[in-house]
Amino acid sequence: CVFVDAAQGSCTPGVAGCLSSNSSGHTLPEGLRGPAKAAGWGNFTCFAPAWLYERRAAYLRVYRGDELIEKAYSTGLSTTFAGDPVLDPQHNHNGPSKGSALVSVVGSGFGLNDLSLRVRIGDKVCEASEWSSDTAVQCKIPRKPVGGNKQVDLVLSVSPYRKAELPLGFNYDGPKINGVSRLEDPACNSTTANCTIVSNGPSLGGETVTLTGTQFMTFDLSPRGTVGGTGCEASVWASDTSVFCKLPSGAGVQKSGTIIVADDEAEVTQAFSYDRPSPRNGSGLMSTRGGAVVNATGADF
């Protein structure tokens, strides 16, 4: 088999300026060398050169020894170029919303050597794409656009003419919240002392609690927190793993905590409890007939 660039017309292989490749020639990349493989009396398989992926079409010339027995155009009915890339729909293609993470794009037909592949996630090209093998490419994923969909199309291009598409084939991981906690002693400096961390607070609210987790983003997107279904009096982004919340007033135990980052929401159940009422003493004149006024004091009423 000899492949000739169709853009150069019917140039003669071996002549200077004629882009051609012999499927058994040692000028090909090592992974593409080898003779044509007969699959039967009427068909056989040729190893295609890498440059073929960069062109829309080529002539294919088939020789028996020095005898030309077939000449076909790549778009002709007598020749089929197999091996278009395919993305594996069973593989879980996903990554963090903040982007810049290296994920594996899995499939087949990515090339037996590096063909400078490009991967697109949604409307954005990967920050970097690195060919690993015929079945895997490493992609440094772009950040999810604010307000964008969590599930987007995945496209891999071997060349302008050979690409694989997987509709809604990539999922951005949203935020995950692990817990709601606070310093038992607000005056304790956690950077210089061993402070006690608790998951309860006063029913009057007003104290600062921390929502901890992952994927809160690496910059401030004005996240919003809730405790027990009530919005924090104020929410302040601290890092990709923590958001400060001014505790709203409430009552009850094992309340849920929620974090909303842009349009993504995550919840953790049974994360926080409000302190129970704690009476200390009472005063007043009491009568067996009732009707007396008693003054009870304590906390968390």
Rank of each mutant, 00 (worst) to 15 (best):
V227S: 04
D263F: 04
R280W: 00
S249G: 15
S278N: 14
G201T: 05
F272I: 03
D240G: 09
A292C: 01
A193F: 02
C245A: 10
V253T: 15
P277C: 09
G250E: 13
V268A: 01
T191P: 00
S222N: 13
S256T: 03
V236A: 14
D220R: 08
N194G: 12
G225T: 03
W237C: 05
T208L: 07
G257V: 01
S256H: 01
T218F: 03
Y274P: 08
T192S: 14
R289Q: 09
G231D: 12
D263V: 06
G205E: 07
C195D: 07
P248L: 07
D264H: 07
V198W: 02
G250L: 11
T288K: 06
V253A: 15
E267N: 09
S249F: 05
G250C: 12
A251E: 14
G231S: 13
Y274L: 09
E265T: 14
L247N: 10
T214Q: 08
L204P: 00
P248K: 10
V209M: 05
Q270H: 06
S235W: 01
E265Y: 00
T191G: 06
R276Y: 04
T196G: 05
S283Q: 13
S283P: 02
P277T: 11
A262M: 01
W237S: 07
D220H: 09
G250S: 13
S283H: 10
E207Q: 15
Y274V: 08
G250M: 12
T210F: 08
P279C: 09
S239K: 11
W237M: 08
M217D: 14
G205Y: 03
T218C: 04
T230E: 06
P223S: 06
L204T: 14
P248I: 07
